[in-house]
């Protein structure tokens, strides 16, 4: 695609701006900011990736992954302020996801160990893990707030903190992972995944594109379930003190 064609595609930005102005929706400013930001960010990433791919140096790959983890943590931590040390719990989760997925992919030689594969797959996994983390933290906090009496009931009967939040933890894990599992059931029928569409548009063989898309879908399943479980089991102990008392003030102050 040439820069002229890309410029012409700005007509798709003008349509929502004109509609917003006509109907007084007030979306013009946010639309312009979104377009400017995404253009700058993506072009910057494009140039950086170009440089990293050509340099063939693993240091740059690692730096890119660290940058992704920092950005994902910064974004997700706002949803878990009631959980002590949430920043490090998120960092541990993202690093674990990265090592697990890349370890299997590279260890089993499913993909070659080059920046061209490692960086985009890492981006998809960490990004997905971030969204899952936000969904999980939202749901887990809400479950704890709504079932405080159940938590205290189980503690008062001599249950452990893990037993006291078990149901809330399971509900939050299920609720945050179900969208990933459900969306995969209709994959290819309702929507063509973005990565696959991109590859096809770029001229790749559709069967080859499907193979890579399937690989990503399988990886997303692991990422979703592992993120929610890991974050859950890292988070719940901080809601109790050493006398096994539920620190509900932390949830209420959210």
């Amino acid at each position: 695609m040439s820069y002229l064609n890309l410029t012409l595609s700005l007509v798709f930005v003008l349509i929502p701006i004109l509609l917003s102005k006509t109907l007084n929706l007030g979306l013009e400013k946010d639309t312009v900011i979104a377009v400017v930001r995404s253009t700058i960010q993506l072009l910057a990433v494009g140039f950086i990736l170009h440089f990293v791919f050509n340099s063939k140096n693993y240091i740059y790959i690692i730096l890119m992954i660290i940058l992704m983890i920092v950005a994902a943590t910064h974004n997700a931590r706002k949803k878990g302020t009631s959980i002590q040390g949430i920043t490090w719990k998120l960092v541990v989760t993202f690093i674990f996801i990265e090592i697990l997925t890349q370890g299997i992919l590279l260890g089993l030689q499913i993909v070659p160990p080059t920046a061209q594969y490692i960086i985009p797959i890492s981006g998809m996994m960490i990004g997905n893990s971030m969204v899952l983390g936000i969904l999980f933290l939202n749901r887990f906090t809400a479950e704890l707030k709504n079932h405080q009496d159940q938590t205290e009931l189980i503690l008062s009967l001599g249950g452990t903190p893990k037993q006291a939040v078990h149901n809330q933890l399971v509900s939050a894990i299920k609720a945050s992972t179900i969208p990933t599992i459900e969306s995969q059931k209709t994959m290819g029928l309702v929507q063509l995944p973005g990565m696959m569409s991109g590859q096809i548009i770029a001229g790749a063989d559709p069967v080859q594109a499907v193979q890579f898309q399937l690989l990503v879908l399988f990886l997303l399943l692991t990422t979703a379930v592992v993120t929610a479980i890991l974050l859950g089991f890292l988070s719940y102990p901080t809601l109790f003190n050493e006398r096994m008392q539920f620190l509900k003030e932390r949830i209420q102050s959210e």
């Binding site: 205290e152 009931l153 008062s156 009967l157 001599g158 452990t160």
Partner: peptide
């Protein structure tokens, strides 16, 4: 130990929460 204490000192709440 908190678990032993709570088993020995039972608490029934006004709201009688049920699982």
């Amino acid at each position: 130990h908190p678990v032993d204490l709570r088993r020995n000192v039972g608490l029934a709440l006004q709201s009688a929460p049920m699982i």
